[in-house]
C-alpha cells in the first residue's frame, strides 16, 4: 500500500502526537497536525492530503466544530477521505457525516478504536481507498433503532450488514464469521433484496445498503 498523506486535527496534544507516531509507524506521512477546526481547513488548503483524521469536539467552541469541518470538507472536496474519531456513540453525529456526500471515503470511529492500533491503521487505509467505516458500537445502536426494516433480515444477515458498515470486504466478512465467501455473497444478496435495493454495480449497492441503515 502506498503511504498516505495524512492531516490530523485533535486538540489534545498527547493524543495528537501519539496518533501521528502510530500512523508513521504504519508507513504513512503526517503532513500537518492542528488543534482546531479553522486550522484544519487551512491545513487542507495549504498542504493537501489523502485523508483527514479529525476529532469532533475542538476549539474554539468545544462543541462539534470538528464534525462541521469534516462535513464542509466532504462537500468542498469529494476526493478527500475523511475519518472522524469521536467520543460519542450517538449515531446522530455519524448520520450527519454520512448524509453529506456519496457515502464513500468516509468513516466514523470511537476514539477507543485507536487503541487497537492495527485495526485503526487498516480502517484509515480502507477509508482512504474509498470505503465506508462506521464504528461497530454505533452500528449496534442503529440496529436497535431500525427495528422495522431490520425485522425482515435474519440474524446472520444483520451480522453481515454490521460488518459491511464497518467497511469489510466479502473475504474479511467470511473470515470473521467463519463461513465461505459464497455464503457471504448469498447473505448480501438477501440483504439487497430485503432492503429493496435495485440492481446496480455491486460496490454502489453495498454503500447504499449501509446508508439505508444509517439514514433509517
Amino acid at each position: 500500500m502506498p503511504p498516505l498523506r495524512v492531516i490530523i486535527a485533535e486538540d489534545a496534544v498527547l493524543l495528537r502526537e501519539g496518533m501521528a507516531g502510530l500512523l508513521e509507524r504504519f508507513g504513512h506521512q503526517v503532513v500537518a497536525m492542528v488543534g482546531d477546526a479553522p486550522g484544519l481547513l487551512a491545513a487542507v488548503d495549504h498542504h493537501g492530503a489523502d485523508i483527514v483524521i479529525t476529532d469532533v469536539r475542538m476549539p474554539p467552541g468545544y462543541a462539534d466544530e470538528g464534525l462541521r469541518a469534516a462535513i464542509a470538507l466532504r462537500r468542498a472536496r469529494p476526493g478527500l477521505a475523511v475519518l472522524v474519531v469521536s467520543q460519542y456513540v450517538e449515531q446522530t453525529y455519524a448520520a450527519e457525516l454520512l448524509d453529506h456526500g456519496s457515502g464513500a471515503k468516509v468513516g466514523y470511529l470511537l476514539k477507543d478504536r485507536i487503541g487497537d492500533v492495527r485495526d485503526f491503521a487498516s480502517a484509515v487505509a480502507r477509508v482512504a481507498a474509498g470505503g465506508t467505516v462506521v464504528d461497530p458500537e454505533v452500528v449496534r445502536q442503529l440496529i436497535r433503532r431500525r427495528r422495522d426494516p431490520l425485522a425482515r433480515l435474519t440474524p446472520r444477515e444483520r451480522e453481515v450488514l454490521g460488518l459491511m458498515a464497518e467497511g469489510r470486504s466479502n473475504a474479511a466478512i467470511a473470515r470473521e464469521l467463519v463461513v465461505t465467501e459464497a455464503a457471504v455473497s448469498k447473505h448480501i444478496a438477501g440483504i439487497f433484496l430485503k432492503l429493496d435495493l435495485p440492481p446496480a454495480e455491486d460496490d454502489h449497492r453495498r454503500v447504499r445498503a449501509v446508508l439505508a441503515y444509517l439514514r433509517g
Partner: peptide, 12 residues
Amino acid sequence: QRLVSLTMNLGL
C-alpha cells in the same frame, strides 16, 4: 483523552 492515549500506547 488520557485513557485513549494509554490504550494507544499499550496497543503500540
